[in-house]
Design a protein around this nucleic acid. Structure first.
Length: 397
DNA sequence: CGTCCACAGGAATGACGGGCGG
DNA sequence: CCGCCCGTCATTCCTGTGGACG
């Protein structure tokens, strides 16, 4: 056994495919961002006043996932920080609102970057905010706050925090705060109140999706340094680009495809990355994503999903809330668990809808009521793989 | 054209686990 | 250590509603 392991490690270390795999990771920031020159310049122009101590306008950045919003922002901030003028004058803060999706956690994160200590929980949000304002004022700097995937925060916790942050400068004398909001939801402003839109949207930048040829450029540039020479087979780059272009021009997806295709080829002991590896990579990505989401869902969501699945299996392609709830209740009784109310189940169904596990559409059937038509939008295989990990669920299946 | 189904989804409230200040 | 307050999850109660049926 240990000999086999040894061989495996050696093989991975002496990769015949990769020269530097890290270059393909989604959070790697390359020196050059092809086809985003315009956005880089615009953003730099807006932020430049910070260098001589003026507050830059707040900025709203729109664009679908993988269109380079985060990369461009980090790129520009990095360039600003490098300038001599920035020293002792500018502090930049980055927070991802999908990762930290409550007002409290965002504030805690902001506090962290200006060395203000706050506990994980327990304090009132208003208290944390107060400490943050005090901390900022003490710093006497221009603070640039990047709130990535800001839509996630607003949808969950409302725009209160945003409002406060846009007004924060009225409480400050020695420091100034500038906010960059990044969102991949183009209709995001619907969730915002007018007061926030006007102050946050002083400037707006739109990132269009990458087209397939542009994705090819990006991939080729990264592949040149990430892979050993000559290992990329005919048409591999083009396929990755085409698949990602179909997914609204998502560069992250394109890079993931290429990296995982490379990993699959390597696992096979192949010396070339071929088209079939890319196809397999696509399947793997989708499966992993879904299984990961399923595994981390709360127990009752899993049971609801199972209920939908069982309804599905007994012939119907679509189910309604009422039918799901009945089945759900039976399952709970069999497992001797407390039954949640229908109101709560309705929320759980909505949550799974936004996660993309199921598809729920409100339909009206006249005097037979108004309900939701629910169907599962993931493969049976990944559903089982994700659910069977749960000890309760596996009792039933 | 009004009715009325079967829910959707908002608001208020309670239970619970956890940190804070004294 | 205690009483207090907080955020989160869940319940209860509620009003709203698209359109087939009569």
């Amino acid at each position: 056994m240990s000999k086999k392991l040894d061989e495996l490690f050696t093989r991975v270390l002496k990769s015949r495919i990769f020269k530097n795999r890290e270059l393909l990771r989604p959070d790697y920031l390359p020196d050059e961002l092809p086809h985003r020159e315009k956005q880089i310049l615009s953003l730099a122009k807006i932020l430049a006043p910070a260098l001589h101590g003026e507050r830059p306008s707040n900025i709203f950045i729109y664009g679908l996932t993988g269109t380079g919003k985060t990369a461009v922002t980090r790129h520009v901030l990095k360039a600003i920080e490098k300038r001599r003028e920035a020293r002792g004058r500018i502090i930049t803060t980055y927070a991802n609102c999908r990762h930290d999706d409550t007002n409290y956690r965002i504030l805690a994160k902001l506090c962290e970057t200006i060395n203000v200590k706050v506990p994980f929980t327990g304090l009132a949000t208003a208290e944390v905010y107060k400490r943050y304002v005090e901390g900022v004022e003490r710093k006497k700097r221009i603070i640039i706050i990047v709130l990535d995937e800001i839509d996630a925060l607003v949808k969950k916790s409302g725009d209160d925090l945003l409002y406060k942050l846009t007004r924060i400068n009225t409480q400050l004398k020695k420091s100034k705060v500038c906010i960059i909001g990044i969102t991949n939801d183009l209709k995001f402003t619907e969730y915002l109140s007018a007061r926030v839109i006007s102050s946050l949207g002083e400037e707006e930048l739109v990132f269009p999706p990458y087209r397939a040829p542009e994705l090819e450029d990006i991939l080729r540039m990264r592949a040149r340094d990430a892979f050993k020479p000559g290992v990329i087979g005919q048409g591999v780059i083009e396929l990755c680009a085409a698949l990602a272009a179909r997914e609204h021009g998502d560069a992250r997806r394109a890079l993931d495809l290429l990296r995982i295709a490379g990993e699959i080829a390597e696992r096979e002991g192949n010396v070339k990355v071929e088209i079939r590896h890319v196809k397999e990579a696509r399947r793997e990505i989708e499966r992993d994503r879904v299984v990961e989401v399923l595994k981390t869902m709360p127990l009752h969501s899993k049971i609801v999903l199972l209920a939908i699945y069982l309804q599905n299996k007994s012939g119907k392609r679509e189910t309604t809330t009422g039918e799901i709830y009945d089945t759900y209740r039976e399952l709970c009784e069999r497992l001797q668990l407390d039954v949640l109310t229908q109101r709560r189940i309705s929320d759980l169904i909505n949550e799974m809808d936004t996660l993309g596990i199921i598809h729920a559409k409100v339909i009206s059937r006249g005097r037979y009521g108004r309900t939701k038509a629910v169907k599962i939008s993931i493969s049976e295989k990944s559903l089982k793989e994700g659910l069977l990990k749960d000890e309760f669920i596996s009792k039933i299946l």
